[in-house]
C-alpha cells in the first residue's frame, strides 16, 4: 500500500460508513437547496399600501376576488378571544385561591390553640391500655424493707 492509497482508505469502520451514508441521504433529501425568499420590506410596503387604499378609497360592496386578506377570519378571532377570556378568568381564580391560602397560612399560627390533654409526668399514674401484660413497676423502697 503506497501513501496515496493509505490516505484514501476510509478511516471509519464499514458499519459507520454505512450509517454516514444514510444520514447524508436523509438530510440531502430533506434540507432544501434554496429557501423561499424573505423580503420584510415588501411585507411592510404592501401592508401600508393596503391600509392607505382602504382609507382613501370609498367602501365598495363588491368584493375584489384578487385581494387576499391576511387578517384572521372573524369567527376564529372571536373564538380566540373567548379562549383568551377563559384563560384570564382561570388565572384570576387561581390567583385569588393562592392569596387566600397564603392568608390562611399566615393567620393559623396566631389563632387560639386547642386545649390538649396535660402530659403526665409521673409514669406510675398511667398504664397503657393496649398492653395485655404490663410490666410491673418496681416497688418503692419503704422504711420497713430496710
Amino acid at each position: 500500500m503506497n501513501r496515496q492509497e493509505y490516505l484514501q482508505q476510509p478511516t471509519l469502520p464499514g458499519d459507520e460508513l454505512h450509517a454516514e451514508h444514510w444520514l447524508r441521504e436523509f438530510f440531502r433529501r430533506l434540507i432544501p437547496q434554496q429557501l423561499p425568499p424573505v423580503t420584510p420590506w415588501d411585507r411592510k410596503d404592501t401592508a401600508s399600501q393596503a391600509v392607505a387604499a382602504a382609507l382613501t378609497q370609498p367602501h365598495s360592496c363588491v368584493e375584489d376576488a384578487s385581494y387576499q386578506s391576511d387578517a384572521i377570519p372573524v369567527q376564529s378571532s372571536a373564538s380566540a378571544s373567548l379562549v383568551s377570556l377563559r384563560v384570564v378568568w382561570s388565572r384570576l381564580v387561581l390567583l385569588i385561591t393562592i392569596t387566600l391560602l397564603g392568608w390562611l397560612l399566615l393567620l393559623v399560627p396566631w389563632l387560639a390553640p386547642k386545649p390538649s390533654a396535660p402530659w403526665r409526668l409521673d409514669p406510675r399514674e398511667g398504664i397503657a391500655r393496649d398492653k395485655p401484660n404490663p410490666v410491673a413497676l418496681p416497688q418503692p423502697i419503704t422504711p420497713s424493707m430496710r
Binding site: W22, L23, R24, E25, F26, F27, R29, L30, I31
Partner: peptide, 27 residues
C-alpha cells in the same frame, strides 16, 4: 425503510446531538 429508521433514530437523540448531525451531514 432505511430512511424511516434514520428518522426514528434521530428522534431518539437529544436536540443538541441532532443539531450536530444536521450540520455535519446536511450542510
Amino acid at each position: 425503510e432505511a430512511l424511516a429508521l434514520v428518522r426514528r433514530f434521530l428522534e431518539e437523540l437529544t436536540p443538541a446531538d441532532r443539531e450536530i448531525l444536521t450540520l455535519r451531514y446536511g450542510l
